[in-house]
Amino acid sequence: MSVELLYGVLSLSVCLFALGLLALMLRRNFLLALLGVEMLINAGNLNFLAFARYHNDATGAMFVLFGICLAAVEAVIGLALAVRLFRAHETLGFHAITSLRW
């Protein structure tokens, strides 16, 4: 794997990360924010894979397995939270979920 390709994949990863972050911060809906988190994790995974290939080292690839697991777990917990939040507030808009403030 050439350096140019590495840079290309890393740039893609950064774009994905930035998109995920923006989704998290700008979307006003809990479900869409969850999708943003998903994008963040996958940006990380992509990063791992790019370096694993570049260095020809399987450790990075192994981390990706953990990353996928993490994403799955995050989705489960996140969706469960979404259900509970909806039951409590009857909406998933962040504007209504302000119980973090006293």
Partner: peptide
């Protein structure tokens, strides 16, 4: 401390 989650994220 607005209680608005995206703000905390920011």
């Amino acid at each position: 401390h607005a209680g608005y989650v995206p703000l905390y994220l920011a």
